[in-house]
């Protein structure tokens, strides 16, 4: 009987499925068309590059980190902390006259420290990821205040900025800005990692059915440790990019990305047929946010109305996607 009813059920499911999955790309397309129609300055190569470099890159990197944690069934509220730690170590070492390579490595390790702490809390102590990473966020804020005399930024003078850092932030390879190469490699790397490697499939299994994954003998604990280390490491890359761009470390600047990264990750889940977190979906989500922020500016909305506009748009995308999810279930 189940077999007999299956085809019709699938048939009926097709339309809601399509609406659900196409919602995000469609929203992005509509937004792009709208801005192209309403502002002549929008669909211009220089503006599009500016959207990608200024609005997209950092949030996309942080959101990839978030997607990893969410895919494993958790969340990482301390992505901003890892970003800040990386930035703090990188900039302080450069300011102290250390070579670029050492500073880069130290920055990545600084970010990893936050991830290691998360992994310890989540895997060894069994604290839920939300609370564990929230604790890390709070402790990280104190660490930054204590090491910077209450949150005084560290600025690098022009003379101290290594050429490699300038290249990382403002250079280009084959005419394409370096940050775009970095973000593109991360997108490809983590799309493949999550989708096409045993590790990625295990992470998805842990995220969907933690108990089943456990009883099936998957190395759940080891994989979760890796997830939070990787998440912190990716966030640390964003921290290095940010410091190289502004030639400074500004305490607790990473938290600004947190909520948008969560938003982009969950908006991105609509791209997957089963509603699971996935890197391409997250990237489209970030792109949507970036385009809207840029476009609203171009059509003359001030910063304040931009916030409202972006917020309402995210809200509507979420409503549409969850409503179609319900519709799909009902069908």
């Amino acid at each position: 009987m189940a077999q007999a009813t299956l085809p019709t059920a699938q048939h009926r499911r097709r339309l809601p499925d399509l609406v659900f999955q196409m919602g995000l790309p469609l929203a992005l397309l509509l937004v792009v068309l709208f801005f192209a129609w309403s502002s002549p300055a929008f669909l211009v190569p220089s503006n599009l590059e500016s959207v990608l470099v200024n609005n997209f890159t950092l949030l996309a990197i942080v959101s990839i980190a978030m997607t990893l944690a969410v895919a494993s069934g958790g969340i990482d509220l301390s992505v901003g902390t890892a970003l800040d730690f990386a930035s703090l170590l990188f900039v302080s070492l450069i300011a102290a006259g250390q070579p670029f390579g050492i500073a880069l490595l130290a920055g990545l390790l600084g970010g990893l420290a936050a991830g290691l702490f998360n992994a310890f809390l989540i895997v060894a102590l069994g604290i839920t990821p939300f609370l564990a990473t929230l604790g890390t966020l709070f402790i990280g804020r104190s660490v930054q205040q204590l090491t910077t005399g209450g949150g005084i930024p560290i600025y690098l003078s022009k003379a101290k900025v290594p050429e490699a850092a300038t290249f990382l932030a403002h250079g280009d390879i084959l005419g394409i800005a370096t940050p775009l190469w970095v973000v593109a490699s991360l997108i490809i790397l983590f799309t493949v990692l999550l989708r096409a490697t045993p590790f990625g499939r295990r992470v998805t299994a842990i995220g969907v059915q933690p108990a089943v994954a456990w009883y099936s003998g998957l190395p759940v604990r080891r994989d979760l440790v890796l997830v939070y280390l990787l998440s912190a490491l990716v966030a640390a890359v964003a921290g290095l990019m940010l410091s190289a761009t502004v030639n400074a470390y500004v305490p607790s600047s990473g938290n600004a990305f947190l909520l948008n990264a969560i938003g982009a990750t969950f908006i991105g889940t609509t791209l997957d047929r089963r509603g699971r977190p996935n890197v391409p979906g997250t990237v489209l989500g970030v792109l949507l946010l970036a385009v809207v922020a840029n476009g609203l500016l171009l059509i003359g909305w001030n910063f304040y109305w931009q916030q409202v506009g972006t917020g309402v748009l995210i809200f509507l995308v979420l409503v549409a996607s969850f409503a179609s999810r319900r519709w799909r279930k009902a069908a």
Partner: peptide, 18 residues
């Protein structure tokens, strides 16, 4: 220093939740 406050709060929730 008030810089400790958020760290202590964070440690507190972790302690409690653990």
């Amino acid at each position: 220093s008030s810089y400790w406050v958020s760290g202590v709060q964070g440690a507190l929730i972790l302690l409690v939740v653990a």
